[in-house]
């Protein structure tokens, strides 16, 4: 082999390696920067306290609380629907049917719709159309649900995270051996009973993974909730479904771009970012662990 080829070869390998290295370094730098700068102010008072003096001091408890309630409501909506869709796709539908292909295509496209479009959709469909309809029907036109609130924000996020739940659930349904289903059928199970008594209990890991991934995604999205329920600052915590709420990501956005004195709030801001990151990473990490366990079981059986 000529030395020119050898040199070119070595260069190519090094270049691709360099690309990988740069990505790793970037991630380390981002996380390091946020961890180092955010660590200082991270304290119990910060997490459990209320914002003071125009949000330049104090804690971020209302934002954490709002985020938790938001993703809880979202989970209540997205998990049943996502699991149902995965069950339908994998256990009920004929795989070669056109409609199944259409549903898969819709899911894949749903995953690619920009977050801000979900925000517009949430505003148009949930806040104005659905909320307006509810107000007309049940509240005699008094403004109750036809306004941005935590319910509509969480439902908007539920649609955004739907593909995540479906994909993770379907993967775990696939991991349940076919022979388990046969055994249940032979015991006189109806198709539904097979799903309920055998398939779902054996794919809880994947469902949990999907749920956690959806939560972590939902907790970090800002664009969809900007117009559907998140608020700059509220002196009270959301008490009912039609209240607005504070949220970590939105709080970060607001503090970064609208604060009169960014330098003064910088340490506080870094700590808020760190809290959001720790939250999403903890969730992602749990999901990865569960998924690894599910995959191991799939390989062994």
């Amino acid at each position: 082999m000529s030395s020119r080829i050898r040199t070119a070869s070595r260069m190519f390998v090094s270049l691709t390696g360099l690309a990988a290295l740069i990505i790793v370094i970037m991630v380390v730098v981002i996380l390091g920067n946020i961890a180092v700068n955010g660590w200082e102010l991270l304290s119990w008072e910060f997490i459990a306290g209320n914002p003071r003096t125009g949000m330049t001091e104090g804690g971020i408890f209302p934002a954490i609380f709002g985020t938790v309630v938001l993703v809880l409501l979202m989970t209540l909506a997205v998990v049943p629907l996502g699991v149902a869709a995965a069950v339908w796709l994998h256990e009920y539908a004929r795989q070669d049917s056109r409609f199944v292909q259409l549903v898969r295509l819709a899911l894949q496209n749903l995953a690619g719709v920009p977050a801000i479009v979900f925000g517009l959709f949430g505003l148009g469909f949930f806040v104005q159309f659905t909320g307006g309809g509810i107000d007309q029907l049940f509240f005699g036109g008094t403004l109750t649900f036809a306004q941005p609130c935590i319910l509509w924000a969480s439902l908007t996020l539920a649609i955004l995270t739907l593909p995540t739940v479906v994909v993770a659930t379907e993967e775990s349904l696939r991991a349940v051996p076919k022979i388990y289903r046969e055994a249940a059928y032979a015991l006189g199970a109806t198709r539904w009973q097979v799903v309920w008594h055998v398939v779902l209990p054996n794919s809880l890991g994947g469902i949990l993974t999907g749920t956690i991934l959806a939560i972590s995604r939902g907790a970090g999205e800002v664009a969809p909730i900007m117009f559907t329920g998140a608020a700059y600052f509220l002196p009270f915590l959301p008490g009912s479904l039609n209240d607005q709420f504070m949220e970590l990501g939105y709080h970060i956005y607001v503090m970064t771009t609208q604060s009169p004195d960014v330098e003064a709030t910088k340490p506080l801001l870094y700590s808020t970012v760190l809290v959001l990151l720790l939250l999403t990473f903890a969730l992602n990490f749990t999901a990865v662990l569960i998924r690894a366990k599910v995959r191991r079981r799939m390989r062994s059986s």
């Binding site: 022979i179 055994a183 249940a184 006189g188």
Partner: peptide, 29 residues
């Protein structure tokens, strides 16, 4: 029909769970 005509397969298919749970499944269904 399958409850009247019980079946055993060529490979043993114990479902995940205890012996008791396996036996209780049929009646539960």
């Amino acid at each position: 029909l399958r409850r009247r005509f019980g079946m055993v397969f060529a490979v043993p298919v114990p479902l995940p769970g205890s012996i008791r749970q396996n036996l209780a499944l049929g009646p539960a269904l």
